[in-house]
Design a protein around this nucleic acid. Structure first.
Length: 430
RNA sequence: GCGGCUGUAGCUCAAUGGCAGAGCGUCGCACUGUGGAUGCGAAUGUUGCGGGUUCGAUCCCCGUCAGCCGCCCCA
């Protein structure tokens, strides 16, 4: 009997009980609403891909260390998808000739990464991907960031709670050149990425290991503290102008330390973080890539997009107590009781009539004490309880009890449906 | 994959090298045509799992699994 013989869930996975599933669905609906409000189309790729798809493009680590990989019966290596961008590249490349560019696509689905699970990080997670492909322009970057801020607003996260930090890789490339850093740029980007994480002396040491001179490290440090550096990038000047025009500059800030880990970013990059220092992980990250299809054999196409995992955002919303809004766990507001075996048929009849009229209706599947049935209805979150006993059946009426006020009245059977529909109407819109 | 902390009832957590505890929740009754409140009562544990030390281990030791924190990486 005990729980000791229950087989454990796979490490790093989550069970979605109805309460959590309601949150997951709510998040998905918010994502869909915002994506579609900007005209993005939903798409989806397979959850399984040959590992070769990732081998060329994503970072080495992502494929070798962080993917769930297994051989199929023919010995070919299959990966549970660790990210969507390579799939997107393939899907676009396959139809490159027939798509109307620019395309705006979004997707929300499961991904798997073989990582050490901890707070804000699981091995199985959901990710929102949104991309605009076919144009290389700061306008598209600004649009993507605008989608992001719309999303934050929709789910109730203000610029008090969230910040989107922006930088540009081309700008950093030029600036690094100016201070004589020409080689090892990928490594230096990594060094920049870790400025905030490492302690100062550890960071300096890392820089020296990369072969930088003390002068260069000093120059780099100055660079990374220069909040006005973006004025030297025409792209970013345009970008921030647009952000201003769109009225979202309260969320968006320039930060020369933002560089992003993925290799395929080429231009403007950004990440959103919580201002609450207890959540250090990025909520979402994205940027411009100008060479999306190169590795899957298509003609090069520029694009921009971002990805947001469900774990950190849910964690944040939980912490800020923004999830308490009416997340509907019980879909049926109406609860029909069963008086006794003799009068059960009438209860089933009315439940059926109500369902035919479009109402969601629960019925107690057993003729036990009325008190228990009402108690149960209350527990599972019903709003209205119907009582059909001998008196009601004799008079051809139904007793309606509203649970949160306790008031109750008996009305004619024929008017019950309209009465309930009217009563629940304001609820339906939400 | 590496380093650290933790694991006791459904949940939150006490406790002791010698009979396993509380609060909350659950269930029952007061209340056989009416829930939430109150009162009374009840059930539930191989103390994560496996091994060792010991007369005796939930406690000490080793291993393992899982969670959390950090590294790595990133959503």
């Amino acid at each position: 009997m005990g729980k000791h013989n229950i087989i454990q869930p796979v490490k790093g996975t989550r069970d979605f009980y109805p309460e959590q599933m309601a949150i997951r669905t709510w998040l998905y609906n918010a994502v869909r609403k915002v994506s579609e409000s900007f005209g993005y189309q939903e798409y989806e790729g397979p959850y399984l891909e040959y590992i070769d798809l990732y081998a060329a493009k994503s970072g080495e680590e992502l494929v070798k260390e962080q993917s769930f990989v297994f051989p199929d019966r023919g010995g070919k290596l299959i990966a549970l998808r660790p990210e969507l961008t390579p799939t997107l590249a393939r899907m676009v490349a396959q139809r490159q000739g027939q798509l109307t560019f620019p395309i705006r696509w979004w997707s929300y689905g499961p991904f798997w990464r073989y990582e050490r699970p901890q707070k804000g990080r699981t091995r199985e997670f959901f990710q929102w991907n949104l991309d605009l492909i076919g144009l290389a322009s700061p306008i598209t970057d600004a649009e993507i960031v605008s989608v992001i801020t719309s999303f934050f607003r929709l789910i109730g996260l203000s610029s008090q709670e969230i910040i989107i930090n922006v930088n540009n890789r081309r700008l950093m490339d030029v600036q690094l050149g100016k201070i004589g850093i020409k080689k090892n740029k990928k490594e230096v980007f990594r060094l920049i990425d870790r400025k905030e994480k490492l302690k100062q002396d550890a960071w300096l040491e890392y820089g020296i290991e990369l072969g930088l001179t003390t002068d260069q490290i000093n120059s780099l440090t100055n660079l990374l503290e220069n909040k006005e550096l973006w004025h030297q990038s025409e792209e970013l000047e345009q970008f921030f102008d647009l952000i201003d025009v769109m009225g979202i500059s309260d969320y968006v800030h320039y930060d020369p330390k933002i560089i992003r880990g993925l290799d395929y970013y080429t231009g403007t990059v950004y990440e959103a973080k919580s201002k609450d220092p207890s959540i250090k992980r990025a909520i979402l990250g994205g940027g411009r890539y100008d060479n999306l299809l190169a590795d899957v054999g298509g003609n090069p196409l520029p694009g921009a997009g971002f990805a947001m995992g469900d774990v950190v955002i849910t964690l944040l919303l939980n912490q800020l107590q923004k999830l308490t809004k009416d997340l509907r766990v019980n879909p049926a507001p109406v609860f029909v009781t069963v008086f006794d075996d003799k009068h059960m048929a009438q209860s089933f009849r009315i439940a059926d009539d109500l369902r035919k009229s479009g109402l969601n209706v629960n019925i107690y599947p057993q003729a036990i004490k009325l008190g228990k049935q009402i108690k149960y209805a209350n527990r599972i979150g019903a709003k209205i309880v119907l009582i059909i006993g001998p008196d009601e059946i004799k008079d051809n009426t139904v007793t309606i009890k509203i649970l949160n006020t306790g008031e109750q009245q008996t009305i004619g059977y024929k008017s019950v449906i309209n009465y309930l529909i009217k009563m629940l109407e304001p609820d339906k819109s939400s």
